[in-house]
Design a protein around this nucleic acid. Structure first.
Length: 880
RNA sequence: GCCCGGGUGGUGAAACAGGUAGACACAACGGACUUAAAAUCCGUCGGGACUAAACAUCCCGUACCGGUUCGAUUCCGGUCCUGGGCACCA
């Protein structure tokens, strides 16, 4: 009797071996056995936030990374897979408030916890390169590059609009604004303008766009499109409406110009109003002498600053009472304030053409402004209700000199006509400069000293890093750095008088914009990165969640381009290939109280009943026996109590099962649903594999000498055909990162090998041995421990060396050749039968055989054959 | 509201470049083994028509409606549902 599969013993043994041999520590310019340089491959997962708990999403991400590394290593690559911690951020401050512990303490404890939870998974991280972004040796270089950017004018200071909690007297993140109210105070938030630092990412807009379009061919198209849309390049015309308005003191403001940007200058003759953002200077001016208007602007300042809120709120407006002059017709155009006009886009003002813009149309209807059709798109037009075709391009009508012109001609003509009014063709981006100031404690200090005499002064390079005190405990009302005299008080580097440090810290996206380069030279003390970075970067494969498709990935690309312009690196795109993994979901259960508040139940608190098809139909609480609502499949989250902890799975089934099941659960780039019994199924497979492997031990070790494959029986030839076609498919799937079907392939291969009953037959032993050596290597990247053990037990280690560096099995093309193949026969596209033909059969032979087929004859009987389509090796379609 | 995805059996899914829809599993059901249970092994498993049952055959079926094609899960247009992002969550 063979011993049963004990994953824990096997995994501990394998991991100890890898640890003792330093198997995962990689060096630059590594050579192969023949002394030739091995091709480098840098495969990296997005660094995690140390929340304290490793969840299955992490496991999925890192297992994808690990499987890739192990596969490539067997294929001769020198692969780097590092790990680190995105250690700054709000959750640490929230924990600090809740538990009265400094964020640093909480964060470092979490890092230790999470690292310990990762350890039993057997991931091939090179821990010698670990970094935590809260470490001064890391964030020093955030500060250093920020100062460089200030020098070059890429970083600058201007005012920004933030969410302000009037009770807690603090700035709120969008996340902390719930239904327009502060999350702690519960009162309505306000918009407030404060100064902050910006990075001029818009200066790189064209380069970022060009890169997305032409260079990032290894990225998912979806992400490329999202970035393209985010940058949002539009070509239009910027021009001004001249106006004479009075300022607060009643003085005439001469030569006033209200600048607008439009992509539809061809509709300029349809302008019936102009709308400005509530923060626009013209609005402020008008409000100074008009209390109603002032109140309206104040009203607009209520609510959060999130774009989704702005876009879904009710469109409101109010006339300023001012007029501007239409630059071409000299008509007087009323100026309105519109809460839907964004101060952050273009000049914060738009021309209103209700006839051909949906929002303007709605606005005009609501406030009874006139609608003037000026484009004929050859479809009916009426001002009663908006139709999408009203916004179509067409020919200008009711537009005087423009009549009959199409878009291009009209734009050119108008741009020329508007020249005296500051008009020009202009490229406008949706992308805004990156505001990096955060009014928070737990982040990289912005290296600025504010002096009453000299203003904001950069900290001298020699004084870097500006170290963040680690012993403060925030209390929810403002930034504790403001109360910390040791940090706050300093001397102005310029005039020597006493001054105060900037207490704003940097957006954590700064930390994550270049950490992947620091992994390459983690201990570089004299510079941000060193020559080792040139070896590893650009990264060959980046892996992470789709939720980072725009912000993080765009900021990292921008940061890289800046570093290149500063001569620190030689490449301008950091990530050659990108893989975005899907989320994991699991069923969840809840009850709702009268107020609509949901209480989520843990799986062990309830009992689920199933119908005869195994479909869940209901659930009851074990506590009170009353029903609980089935919440369906939801993204695993702590708040819904449907999180599966890796620890539990590893304890129950072992790391190999956890890894293999997470891979098997679904295509890595799509969301997948967790099922406990599915994991158990994978465990059963591994156990069967282990038992089968050990049972073959003696036969495999004492296998006969090499044999002539041509001498094999028909059954064994078929088996080899099966083995090698499965290997071919699995190899292809490894290359395209479709690891779910790799696991299927391994299952199929074991099924095929178990079919062989004649172990006494020498030929069968040789084929089985070949099959099992393929299967072990094929499964190794996914389940490295069990395969490590079997590789050793079956004697392959003695003959072929460590499995980790064993060569990837080769597909024997000769085994794939078949003498007879099956051809599907269709009549009019419907399957009517199949025929068996020699692989080299001619089209004519196939056609004749197909037509002779009984079932085909039945369906073609009495009908004229119009056409016959033959797909070689696959199918024939008879059209009647 | 805007931008980008996804939708295939009871369930997770597969189908690589438009050519056998449902591989591989899970669940369920039936059976073998067992004193029994567990484990293991074998079988059935999209819906319908025909049938006492089975075999065979036929029809329908990849969210829904339409188009292109000899042939569509795959390509195109529209609709519905659903997930991600929207600049201070990471």
């Amino acid at each position: 009797m063979e011993p049963t599969y004990q994953p824990k013993d096997i995994e501990i043994r394998a991991q100890a071996h890898w640890a003792n041999t330093g198997a995962y520590q990689v060096i630059e310019n590594a050579l192969d056995a023949e002394g030739n340089p091995r091709p480098k491959f840098y495969a990296c997962s997005m660094l995690p936030y140390p929340s304290g708990k490793l969840h299955m999403g992490h496991v999925r991400n890192y297992t994808i990374n690990d499987v890739m590394l192990r596969y490539l290593r067997m294929n001769g690559y020198n692969v780097l897979m590092p790990m680190g911690w995105d250690a700054f951020g709000m959750p640490a401050e929230n924990a600090a408030i809740a538990h009265n512990v400094p964020p640093a303490v909480w964060t470092r404890a979490n890092i230790a916890d999470m690292k310990a939870q990762m350890q039993p998974l057997g991931l091939a991280f090179d821990w010698s390169r670990e970094i935590a972004t809260c470490d001064p040796s890391y964030y020093k270089w955030n500060q250093w590059l920020f100062l460089k950017m200030l020098e070059k004018g890429i970083a600058y200071r201007k005012t920004q609009v933030v969410n302000w909690d009037p009770v807690d007297q603090t700035v709120l993140a969008n996340e902390q604004v719930i239904d327009g109210k502060g999350w702690r105070s519960g009162v309505a938030v306000e918009k407030r303008e404060i100064p902050g630092y910006y990075l001029a990412i818009t200066a790189y807009a064209e380069e970022l766009l060009e890169g997305v379009k032409t260079k990032l061919t290894g990225w998912p198209n979806q992400v490329r499109t999202m970035q393209e849309n985010w940058i949002g390049k539009s070509v239009g015309v910027r021009f001004a409406f001249p106006h004479d308005v009075k300022d607060a003191s009643g003085k005439l403001v001469q030569d006033g110009r209200l600048f607008v940007f439009t992509t539809r200058a061809d509709t300029i003759m349809g302008v019936t109003f102009c709308a400005v953002a509530p923060e626009h200077p013209l609005a402020t001016l008008a409000a100074a002498s008009n209390p109603t208007l002032y109140a309206f602007i104040e009203e607009c300042k209520k609510g959060g600053v999130a774009e989704a809120d702005m876009a879904t709120m009710e469109k409101k407006g109010m006339s300023t009472g001012q007029v501007v002059t239409h630059p071409l017709t000299n008509e007087q155009i009323p100026v309105w304030i519109g809460n839907y006009v964004l101060m952050t886009y273009g000049d914060g003002a738009v021309m209103g053409v209700p006839a051909h813009d949906e929002r303007d149309f709605a606005f005009a209807q609501k406030y009874d402004l006139s609608i003037k059709q000026v484009i004929d798109s050859r479809k009916p037009y009426s001002t009663d209700a908006w139709q999408t075709h009203y916004a179509d391009y067409g020919e200008c009508i009711h537009s005087g000199a423009l009549d009959g012109m199409k878009y291009e001609a009209a734009i050119d003509y108008i741009a020329a006509q508007l020249k005296p009014h500051g008009g020009e063709k202009k490229i406008q981006y949706r992308l805004r400069d990156w505001g990096i100031s955060r009014q928070r404690y737990w982040g990289t200090p912005i290296p600025i000293i504010n002096c009453d005499s000299c203003g904001p002064i950069p900290v001298p390079y020699a004084d870097l890093p500006v170290i963040l005190p680690e012993d403060l405990v925030p209390d929810g009302s403002g930034n504790p750095l403001k109360k910390d005299k040791r940090f706050l008080n300093c001397v102005c580097p310029k005039c020597g008088k006493s001054a105060q440090r900037e207490t704003d810290t940097m957006d954590t996206f700064v930390d994550s914009s270049w950490y992947f380069m620091r992994y390459c030279s983690p201990n570089s003390n004299m510079s941000m990165v060193d020559a080792r970075n040139d070896y590893w970067m650009p990264m060959d494969q980046y892996i992470g969640g789709i939720e980072h498709a725009v912000l993080h990935l765009l900021y990292a690309r921008f940061w890289t381009k800046v570093m290149k312009d500063f001569g620190l690196i030689k490449f301008d795109e950091p990530f050659t290939n990108l893989f975005t993994q899907g989320m994991l979901s699991k069923e969840c259960f809840y009850r709702q109280d009268e107020a609509g508040k949901k209480r989520w139940y843990y799986p062990n608190e309830i009992e689920v009943t199933y119908d005869d098809k195994g479909r869940p139909v209901g659930a009851i609480s074990k506590e009170d026996g009353n029903p609980v609502i089935l919440g369906g499949m939801e993204k695993m989250s702590k708040s819904k109590n449907n999180v599966v902890e890796p620890k539990d799975i590893i304890e129950k089934f072992g790391a190999d099962t956890a890894r293999a099941y997470v891979m098997f659960a679904g295509p890595p780039d799509q969301s997948a649903a967790w099922s406990d019994s599915g994991a158990e199924g994978v465990f059963r497979f591994l156990r069967r594999f282990y038992t089968f492997g050990l049972a073959q031990r003696e036969a495999v070790k004492n296998h006969p000498a090499k044999i002539d494959w041509n001498q094999l029986s028909r059954e064994l030839k078929t088996l080899r055909h099966t083995l090698h076609s499965i290997l071919k498919q699995a190899t292809h799937d490894y290359q395209r990162l479709q690891y779910n079907t790799v696991v299927s392939a391994a299952m199929k291969m074991l099924n095929a090998l178990e079919e062989v009953k004649t172990t006494a037959d020498a030929h069968a032993v040789v084929v089985t041995r070949e099959g099992i050596s393929i299967l072990i290597r094929m499964l190794y990247p996914v389940a490295p421990h069990i395969t490590f053990q079997l590789w050793d037990e079956l004697g392959f280690k003695a003959t072929h060396g460590e499995i980790m560096d064993a060569p990837w099995p080769k597909v024997d093309d000769a085994a794939l050749v078949q003498e007879e193949i099956q051809i599907m026969v269709q009549v009019n596209g419907k399957l009517r039968g199949q025929i068996s033909v020699r692989a080299d059969a001619s089209k004519e032979t196939i056609e004749a055989l197909a037509l002779a087929d009984e079932s085909v004859a039945k369906h073609t009987d009495g009908k004229a054959i119009k056409k016959v389509i033959v797909v070689p090796g696959k199918l024939i379609n008879v059209v009647v």
